[in-house]
Simulated assay, not measured.
Amino acid sequence: MTKPLLYKGRGVASNHAGRYEVQTTELVDDGWGSLEADLPPLLTETLLDNSRSVLNYNQSPDLPFDRSLNPYRGCEHGCVYCFARPTHAYLGLSPGLDFESKLLYKPDAAQLLKAELSRRTYRCAPIAIGTNTDAYQPIEREHKIMRQLLAVFLETRHPVTIVTKSSLIERDIDLLSELAQHQLVTVGISLASLDMKLARLLEPRAATPKRRLSVIEKLHNAEIPVHVLVAPVIPGLNDHELEHVITTAHESGAQGADYILLRLPLEVADIFEEWLHLHYPLKAEHVMQLIRDMRLGKAYDATFFQRMVGSGVYAELLSQRFKLITKRLGLNQGLPNLRCDLFRPPHPGGQMSFDFFT
């Protein structure tokens, strides 16, 4: 039998090769108890990312942004459900434990952003951060890439949207407040559950639910537009908390709310199902059946306008519940639109162009 890789503080229990690899390895117990010893801590390894650009553009009709930025690849939060895990396969790494322990960082992200914003062909529109991996994950404490990026947004008066589940964002309240004064920023705090046990198993290195509620309160008090993102909603596991999470976040200062149904693309489906059987064996089959019922009989359906919310009776019920609770709390108006008319291109050389004065 194959032994799960149960490292303390890590989200998943395997490190299977990505879909592009031709060889795989696995630990097998030979009957002599060779795998019985406790595993040593799995240390985080950081690697340099020499990307030549930082903006990623998309044409997805169901996304509210057309460009995004990710200072890091991989995420130490270790969220078992993370739909970004398959991107590690492009690097020859595993979407499993490698995704949360072998992280790539972009030290020149701020300079690259400046260069892209200074192009004559650039047209201003909000840049989304945190849509793939969390920009405020633990290694940000050391690298401070996100703070450098915020300084660029402030200098250029460029709009930005941020999604995070980390309390580290409080470090940058000074810059965020100034951006907010010019209607240039919104922050979404991801909060899947208020159940401490479930949250620890789902997101082992992320801030606790209570701590995230405190972040919402502090951002609200600093007059920074903040909303709660209930994500992921997992049928049969945390979907019953939907109203409670939104209500509690609203009481903490959230001015808006949204939700995303659990997404299980590519390798994430097997990773999540393995996690279910390890931690919730009596619920595993029921949860997976509910997921398939909302995904046209599959673990995942990537169809535009369906991938975020699902389809079928259960998905429609979830949608109606969300509409009712947000209407009752007055959270269905959304946050104000960000301004793009204040944008002023940067000048990396330090000299302003004549266009600046026209």
Rank of each mutant, 00 (worst) to 15 (best):
D195I: 05
L191F: 03
S190E: 05
A192S: 15
A207M: 09
I189Y: 05
A206E: 02
P204D: 01
E178R: 15
H182G: 00
A206K: 06
S190G: 10
L179P: 06
Q183A: 12
G188I: 07
V187C: 14
A199Y: 03
L194W: 11
L179D: 08
A192F: 03
Q181N: 13
D195H: 07
L184P: 06
H182S: 12
E178S: 06
R200A: 14
R205T: 06
E203T: 07
L184V: 03
Q181E: 14
L194F: 09
R205M: 08
L201S: 04
H182T: 04
R205D: 02
A180E: 09
R205G: 01
S190W: 10
D195T: 06
I189A: 02
L179K: 06
R200W: 01
A180P: 12
V187D: 02
V187E: 03
A180M: 08
M196C: 05
T186K: 14
M196G: 00
A206R: 07
A206M: 08
V187P: 10
E178P: 00
L202F: 05
A207K: 10
A206N: 09
A180L: 10
P204K: 05
K197G: 02
L198A: 00
A199K: 11
M196A: 14
E178Q: 15
L202R: 02
S190N: 10
V185E: 03
S193W: 08
L202Q: 05
L198P: 02
P204A: 01
A192G: 10
K197D: 14
R205K: 14
A206L: 03
T186M: 11
S190Q: 12
Q181W: 01
L184D: 01
S190T: 15
I189M: 10
L202N: 04
R205N: 15
A180C: 12
G188T: 08
S190R: 13
S193V: 08
S190F: 13
Q183V: 02
L198I: 00
R205I: 02
R205Y: 02
G188V: 07
M196S: 14
Q183L: 04
L202T: 06
S190A: 15
E203W: 03
L202I: 12
E178Y: 08
L194K: 08
A192K: 01
R200S: 15
E178I: 11
V187I: 15
S193C: 09
L191N: 05
Q181L: 13
H182R: 13
S190V: 11
R200C: 03
L184T: 05
A192R: 01
A206P: 03
A192Q: 07
L198V: 04
A199N: 13
A206I: 06
Q181D: 11
R205Q: 12
L194G: 06
V185A: 04
A192C: 13
H182A: 13
D195A: 11
Q183C: 07
Q183Y: 03
G188F: 05
A207R: 05
L184E: 02
L194D: 05
P204H: 02
E203L: 10
